[in-house]
Amino acid sequence: MHSRTAALSAVSVFLLTAFANAHATTGIEDMRSNDTVQGLYEIREKAREFVASENAKGEGKWNASEPNLKVFVPRCAVPLGARWDTIRWSSVDKRGELSEHTRRLIAVTCARSVDRAQKWDVHVPVARQLP
């Protein structure tokens, strides 16, 4: 029984190592659009383009981050759009009091996808640059 457990443990370590290496080498640069899926690379680049345009207006300096790597949306049939958006949520503090929170972000938008002409938007986090 001990040799079987050791073999399973070795296989588990191998699989975890292989997964970690594959995940480390697959970055957003490789996540490009294809015929059916909108690439996170293009979504990130649209967010960066939007932030550069907003920064040029002189109303603060922002940096766009990356979209969540788990996001999966159909390919957009029209050019991507972008706009400021805000997410809102509530939490309860230690005293049981409700606290409201907000966070500014960029919504990269698609008005019509290639699959069933659905709309979607992907939120991309932003951070204000310190002066």
Results as ranks from 00 to 15, higher is better:
Ser33Ala: 07
Val108Trp: 00
Phe50Ser: 14
Gly39Gln: 06
Thr36Leu: 14
Arg128Gly: 07
Leu80Trp: 04
Val51Trp: 01
Leu40Tyr: 03
Pro125Lys: 06
Val92Arg: 08
Arg83Asn: 13
Leu130Asn: 13
Gln129Val: 15
Trp84Asn: 07
Ala64Phe: 02
Thr25Cys: 02
Ala18Met: 04
Phe72Val: 00
Thr102Glu: 12
Pro67Trp: 00
Lys119Gly: 06
Ser33Gly: 11
Arg128Ala: 15
His23Met: 07
Tyr41His: 06
Ser33Val: 11
Ser9Arg: 14
Asn21Asp: 08
Asp30Arg: 05
Arg75Lys: 15
Ala47Arg: 01
Ala6Met: 13
Arg32Trp: 03
Ala47Cys: 05
Ala117Ile: 00
Cys110Ser: 06
Asn63Gly: 06
Gly58Phe: 12
Asn55Ile: 07
Gly96Tyr: 02
Ser99Leu: 14
Ile43His: 04
Gln118Lys: 08
Ala7Trp: 07
Val37Ala: 07
Ala52Cys: 11
Arg44Ser: 07
Tyr41Ser: 02
Asp93Ile: 01
His101Ala: 05
Ala64Gly: 06
Glu45Val: 13
Pro79Phe: 04
Arg48Ser: 03
Ala24Ser: 07
Val114His: 00
Val124Cys: 12
Ala56Glu: 14
Ile106Gln: 03
Glu42Met: 07
Glu49Phe: 01
Phe72Gly: 05
Lys57Glu: 15
Arg95Gln: 15
Pro79Lys: 05
Asn68Ser: 07
Arg128Leu: 14
Phe14Glu: 05
Trp89Phe: 01
Val126His: 05
Phe14Val: 09
Val73Gln: 01
Val122Gln: 13
Tyr41Cys: 06
Ala52Ser: 10
Ser9Asn: 10
Val78Thr: 08
Arg116Val: 03
Pro67Ile: 05
Met1Lys: 10
Ala47Ile: 00
Arg83Asp: 12
Phe14Trp: 02
Ala7Val: 05
Glu45Cys: 12
